[in-house]
């Protein structure tokens, strides 16, 4: 594997471990990877709002780094 097989994290009130089953680098990603999981309720939302949420959360997370 080109990356770690597990990623552990600890926050103030939570901890967990992410298990990486497969790393794909420099490969073509099939469209199916970006499809919503089957069987879950879906809702169309404004793309710009969603992107601003991601940006704001990412910036906030980076600000928390020591």
């Amino acid at each position: 594997m080109p990356g770690p097989s597990t990623i552990s994290f600890e926050a103030r009130q939570a901890s967990g471990q992410i298990v990486v089953r497969q790393w794909q680098i420099d490969t073509v990603a099939p469209d199916e990877l970006f499809c919503e999981p089957p069987g879950l309720e879906c809702q169309d939302v404004d793309r710009a709002d969603l992107e601003r949420m991601f940006a704001a959360v990412l910036k906030f997370a980076l600000e928390q780094l020591p």
Binding site: R47, A48, E51, R52, A55, A56, L58, K59
Partner: peptide
């Protein structure tokens, strides 16, 4: 505004 522009605006805080 483009997506890049929006992200830049959101990040440039």
């Amino acid at each position: 505004m483009t997506t890049v522009g929006r992200c830049r605006e959101a990040c440039a805080l």
